[in-house]
Amino acid sequence: MEGLNIPLNHILLVSSLLFSIGMLGLMIRRNIIFILMSLEVMLNAAALAFVAAGAHWGQPDGQIIFMLILSIAAAEVAVGLGLVLQVQRRFKTLDMDSANRMRG
């Protein structure tokens, strides 16, 4: 195990920073594109934490979960973009607050 040896704490710090940024974006942005992007950031923050933890314990689980998160993120983006198109088509805007009525 040669090479750069970054302490786990640093990585976790970065990961939680990323997560917080994503969450903050999720909370304050109204544009649906930005919301999706913030979600991606949060997912990746979690993935980073998994990878770091996996490396730290020398277990493959972290990388397996990373693969899982990647695929979830891809699926999420696919659904999310579909929603974006629908929202754009229906409300002629990307503002999420305009889509606050449920029509059963």
Binding site: M23, R29, I35, A99, N100
Partner: peptide, 13 residues
């Protein structure tokens, strides 16, 4: 139940 996404997220957090 406001229908505002950000309100939901905020309360969740």
């Amino acid at each position: 139940q406001t229908g505002q996404m950000r309100w939901y997220i905020l309360s969740m957090v």
